[in-house]
Design a binder for these strands. Sequence first.
DNA 1: TTCGAATGTTAGCCGAAGCTAAGAAGGATG
DNA 2: CATCCTTCTTAGCTTCGGCTAACATTCGAA
Lengths: 147, 147
Amino acid sequence: MSKQHQRTRSDHASEIAEDYVEAIADFIADKDVCRSGDLVRHFNVTHATVNNTIARLERDGFVTTAPYQPIALTARGRRLATACRKRHETVEAFLLKIGVSPATAVIDSEGIEHHVSRETLDAMKRILSDGWPDEVAGGSRRGDGLH
Amino acid sequence: MSKQHQRTRSDHASEIAEDYVEAIADFIADKDVCRSGDLVRHFNVTHATVNNTIARLERDGFVTTAPYQPIALTARGRRLATACRKRHETVEAFLLKIGVSPATAVIDSEGIEHHVSRETLDAMKRILSDGWPDEVAGGSRRGDGLH
DNA sequence: TTCGAATGTTAGCCGAAGCTAAGAAGGATG
DNA sequence: CATCCTTCTTAGCTTCGGCTAACATTCGAA
């Protein structure tokens, strides 16, 4: 504990970047274009806020914009969006697998996805594809005879 | 999707409140008192930052302070700390259970804990105490013969 | 007892993410 | 064409969580 706490501030910024980029990619996939109004409605913030955030994303090389034009992702933005979407899907599927309701899985996966390391993500994927790990040591049986 | 995005800003604030309150409780448990310097080292931020944050916590009724005195938790602060600690422990134990390494479990649980709903937490607890759920439908076998 | 290190506090700055209010661009429609 | 509505942009404000720099307090030694 200790070192990773530097993350706090700058991580929060990139979480929002990830959320925006992911949403923009979704809109483009759905409707072919993404307009700032789409993001206003999606994130439930004002136009001004979306504008600020998009300006930051452009500054950081994730999107390109022009006045009154739709928002386009750069190659870098697309890469990030794809990575986020996959991670998001994994987390959500995993939550469903452990018995969380669909509605909660949607909500919680949005919060959790930004904090899941590669290693944890791999553990989730493994379980999704291979089933539960063997019980290693102590506790917990489920049926016992099982199939 | 949509409504819960209002959370963004104010949630981030309360995450930090939770982290601080949890840390303060830990120091008090360990050493009987918590000084601002402890938090400086723990969170790896400056004295000034800790001071600001503690002022906010005091404003919000989680701690009481007096100049050059140790930081004390209010009843409300203690309640929050206890809840956070339990939640944190559950998440960390769960990550270990799914096969994540101890070091990563420590790190990821710190990030994840703030985003886990009651329902998801319950699912984790259930698995920790009752073992893996039965396979409901399709996919995934693990060994097959097994023991 | 005075000095210096460690610890706390205060003031003032920055950037991110939110807001409101007001104005500019574009598109349908009379 | 003028008008009006929707969409978008700009300006300016707030709070939060960071920072540095400077000052105050406490306390253990020399």
